[in-house]
Design a protein around this nucleic acid. Structure first.
Lengths: 119, 119
DNA sequence: TGAATATCTGAACAGACCCGCAGACGAAGG
DNA sequence: CCTTCGTCTGCGGGTCTGTTCAGATATTCA
């Protein structure tokens, strides 16, 4: 069972038992931040659309993604850079095209759960 | 098979077939926005912590949540208001306490997938 | 090499977001 | 009634985000 950190002992606590249990249920700080970061990437309709495109058609290039989503090339590029930085998508250059694909299986699960199921 | 919207015909498209297929795979606009909104709620470490607490201990009150997460009461209240607005959590008054609980099964799934699995 | 094409990048702006503060509200108990 | 306590809310400011614009970079082909 966890203890209540010293810097919170002054706050009014109603049910100390439950607070301890809740603290015990919290994940590591870094893990929580990481999760929030990933969710943040999915929190934008345009990025979500890009990922949905890539889920259906892996290997699309930037300008096709722009055409499919109605975004400007530049906006697509910016968005993909963020997704790439977190290894959500992978980029493979082929000639002058750069083909993108979802590189994280977990993300695909989240997308399925999102679109297929109501949410 | 879908058609490419007229306002994008001027843009340079590499693989028209794939663009059409991708467009067909896109969900309804409102559905995408809704999903992005939900993900947005999970995109903040503090809100995530609150939800993790509530997942472990349903029915916690605001001040206990504040103690468990190290947030100020006010911040907890602000966060819970957003979550309530999207029916992610439910609030039940009991005397002067307000007890919160996760009201959406899908959200609990997402949380599990987040914390239990690496992500 | 030089032109054309696809993609990337940095700067700058508008808008959204999160939290602290101060005070209001609602419920219980003296 | 008045106080106390738990919770809520409007506002202000500091920060983060998404987009556009202009221009840089990379690759192909004539």
């Amino acid at each position: 069972m966890h203890r209540i950190p010293a810097d919170r002992l002054d706050s009014r606590i109603i049910a100390p038992e439950e607070v301890c249990e809740a603290i015990g249920a919290l994940a590591e700080d870094s893990q929580v931040r990481r999760a929030a970061e990933i969710f943040g990437l999915l929190a934008d309709p345009n990025r979500l659309r890009l990922l949905l495109c890539l889920r259906a058609v892996p290997g699309m290039c930037v300008s096709d993604l722009a055409a499919a989503t109605g975004m400007a090339d530049s906006a697509v590029s910016h968005a993909l850079r963020l997704l790439r930085a977190q290894s959500v998508v992978r980029a493979d250059r082929e000639g002058r095209l750069v083909k993108y694909a979802i590189s994280d299986k977990t993300i695909e699960d989240l997308l399925s759960r999102t679109v297929d199921h109501p949410l």
